[in-house]
């Protein structure tokens, strides 16, 4: 199926009708071309998407479809080849490195497939690190880190090293770390891909809970349909294009139709 830019925009429009409110992230016709020698990879071919403040959005697509690339763009981790990304109405292309670092530090919390905990640091120190980057004194950071670790149920593991913990526990530490500076957005790229089903579901439950208690916007990428049921909206991405935006209910109907 070939989708034109106009079609994508109209598909997005139908999704945006689902609710009103302010947009925490807006991506407008984002294209990303990776050049490696002579070969060009069109990882994104014009993705347009608005994300509402406080919603839980899942980005669904097969491996290589451009999910991670899209995350990089909307999370201020990389620059689009063309197109615009606004975070809190700010065009991030206009930001200097110091402002970008500030944004990554306080506006967005990143959660990774491979947890990416700093192996040389204890859980507590991992959670304290973003606060250190934000200039918080270490006493305040320690107190707050302990609070957040308690929030994810790991206060008794604070002094353990990541290598001494299970994958699910490590991912919860990573979530605690992402929450350190109380960001408006949590970006999680396939957070459950390295976890077994049950542990993965626990993580999804944790996200849903954080959405309720903190009002944080949650954006997760996944290629596992089982991870979608808690989300408010599902963005289907294929071959660098946003194909459609649905709700879990619509998806259930579709799945019902297929089977």
């Amino acid at each position: 199926m070939v989708v034109t830019k106009d079609q994508v925009v109209s598909l997005f429009a139908s999704g945006a009708d689902l609710s009103q409110g302010d947009y925490v992230i807006r991506a407008v016709d984002v294209r990303k071309i990776y050049r490696m020698g002579d070969t060009e990879t069109h990882a994104l071919r014009g993705a347009t998407l608005d994300i509402l403040r406080g919603e839980y959005m899942s980005i669904m697509g097969p491996s290589g479809s451009g999910k991670t690339t899209f995350f990089n763009m909307i999370g201020g981790l990389g620059k689009p080849t063309t197109g615009k990304v606004y975070i809190d109405q700010v065009d991030i292309a206009q930001l200097d490195p110091y402002e970008l670092a500030w944004l990554r530090c306080r506006k967005v919390g990143y959660i990774f497939q491979a947890f990416n905990l700093i192996q040389v640091m204890s859980c507590l120190e991992n959670v304290m690190l973003p606060m250190a980057f934000a200039g918080v004194t270490s006493e305040d950071a320690r107190d707050k880190a302990m609070e957040i670790l308690a929030e994810v149920g790991l206060e008794d593991r604070a002094l353990h090293k990541p290598s001494e913990m299970s994958g699910g526990q490590q991912q919860r530490v990573a979530i605690a770390r992402a929450l350190a500076n109380s960001p408006a957005i949590l970006l999680a790229d396939e957070p459950t891909a390295n976890l077994d089903l049950r542990t993965g579901e626990e993580i999804i439950e944790l996200f849903a809970r954080l959405k309720e208690t903190r009002g944080v916007t949650i954006i997760t990428a996944t290629h596992d349909k089982k991870m979608l049921k808690r989300s408010d909206r599902i963005v289907w991405i294929e071959d660098g294009l946003i194909e459609r935006v649905t709700t879990p209910e619509e998806m259930n109907i579709e799945v019902g139709e297929v089977h």
Binding site: Y98, A101, Y110, N116, I118, P130, F133, R177
Partner: peptide
Amino acid sequence: FKEIGTMKCLGALSVF
């Protein structure tokens, strides 16, 4: 690489 990238995601400046 990953650790450095992660630190940058968490708000580390290049200077740091």
